[in-house]
Computed example of a mutant assay.
Amino acid sequence: MKLQHNLGGLEGLPQPLTLEKRVFVEEWEKRIFGIHVAMMGLSNHLGSALPEYPIAEVPTAFRDEWTWADLRTGAEAMNPFDYFKFRYYEKWLGGITQFFIDKGYVSEDELAAAVGAAAPSPDGAGDAIDDQVIDYLRRGDSPRRDVAHPRFAVGQKVRITDVPAGAHTRLPGYLRARTGTVQRIFEGDYGYFVETGDGIGDPMPIYIVEFTPHELWGVRAEPGANTLYAELFEAYLQPVEENQ
Rank of each mutant, 00 (worst) to 15 (best):
W92I: 02
F152A: 04
L10F: 04
A165Y: 09
L228Y: 14
F84S: 02
E65I: 12
Y105C: 14
S121M: 14
P80W: 03
T73K: 14
A177E: 08
Q244M: 06
A125V: 08
V37L: 08
V147M: 10
G188T: 01
G173E: 00
G201F: 01
R220M: 07
K21M: 08
P122Y: 06
G47E: 08
F186N: 00
E57R: 14
G201C: 03
P205E: 08
W92Q: 04
E76N: 08
L71D: 13
V106N: 08
G12I: 01
F100H: 11
A61I: 09
L7I: 10
W92P: 02
P54T: 10
P150S: 05
K91E: 01
R220Q: 14
F33Y: 13
A114P: 12
Y53I: 03
Q156A: 09
E242Q: 13
I55Y: 01
W68T: 15
V194K: 02
K91R: 15
R159W: 04
E20V: 15
D189G: 11
Y83L: 05
S107Y: 07
R170Y: 05
D131K: 15
D189Y: 05
W28R: 03
S142P: 02
Y207I: 02
F99L: 10
A119Q: 12
H214F: 10
E210W: 01
E241H: 14
T60P: 05
R144H: 06
A75N: 05
H168I: 11
K21Q: 15
W66H: 04
H5S: 11
K91Y: 02
D102K: 15
E231C: 14
A117G: 14
R22E: 12
E57T: 14
L50K: 00
A69F: 03
K157V: 05
N226K: 12
D202S: 12
A128E: 12
A75V: 06
L17K: 13
D64C: 08
Y174Q: 04
P16D: 06
P80M: 04
G116C: 13
Y53F: 15
V133L: 00
K21A: 14
L216V: 13
Y83K: 03
L13A: 14
E110C: 10
I129K: 06
G9C: 05
L19R: 09
D131P: 01
E110W: 07
L10E: 14
R151F: 06
G41I: 01
G197L: 00
D202N: 06
K30S: 13
Q15D: 13
Q238A: 14
G191R: 11
E108W: 01
A148T: 15
F84R: 10
P143T: 12
P205Y: 04
L175F: 04
D146M: 09
